[in-house]
Amino acid sequence: MIRIHDLTKAYPKARDGRGSPVTAVDRVCLTIDRGEVFTLLGPNGAGKTTLVKILSTLILPTSGTATVNGHDILTQPTRVRASIGFSPGGERSFYFRLTGRQNLEFFGALQGLRPPLLHQRISEVLDQLGLEEEADKRFMKYSSGMRRRLGIARALLTDPPVLLLDEPTASVDPASARHIREHIRELKAQGRTILLTTHNMDEAERISDRIGILNKGRLIAVDTPANLRGILHQCRLRLAVRNWGEDPPRFIGALRSISGVAAVYEGNPSLEVIMTQKEFVTSEVVRLIVEHGVEVESITTCEPSLEDIFLTLTGGETSRV
């Protein structure tokens, strides 16, 4: 549905007009399948929005190309635009003095919709996004969450097969963010292809079929959330210690000597063991606890978070483009 081939966007100098040349998107290759929710994850300035805007035909790439729904972004921009619904990152993309419904009527008309189909589609998308009751309030009275939802409603007006959602839950409260995620799942269930951007790792993990990690314009990893977790091959064992036994240093030393233990971090009253071989290390740790007379309240294991993976892949450094 979306094929990106060797796409690069370079600016001769930084966007503020000063500084050295900047490569916002650097030789990105990616294929997103029909009906897939794909998340571009990266810090601010990683190149996510630039990539989405190139796919929207709003920015011309320096080199490379891409197709959306089979249409080339460079040679068939009109057909590309007809295939996509775009919801922007900011809240300022509507006319503040107009109501939500009037805004949708305006943008729908520009998309070529005419009454009565236009008014029917407006009612449908308002209902779908839960905005029917607020539709006749001026946009300036909308909360951040409602503004985001109206943005998605506008993207859906023409019933496009592809949705590009730039930071759909940025700066909204947790309840609104949850609602928006639910809407995104419903849109996926309708068979739409969704490319969204976020710097929220938790959100990416919850709603994505696959995640692409973008840093300094380069796509450094693409996989399912589960497979990305496997990149680290690490797991954490957390011990809540009640009684350290007779010789705590000897106990800690014994833990560190277990084959498959990468590190042991001491806290009080907790202990964290970073392990590369989960089953073997866990049984060894239990054996040493008993052997050294240590009393523990709980033992928990933790999979690596997306944040761990992200920091590992980026070497813990990110930069603004």
Binding site: T57, A82, F86, P88, S93, F94, F107, L110, G112
Partner: peptide
Amino acid sequence: QMGTLEFLLMSDTPLHQI
């Protein structure tokens, strides 16, 4: 300033008509 220009440009309506 309204943040709407990109949406107008992405619409079905040619720029000169807008």
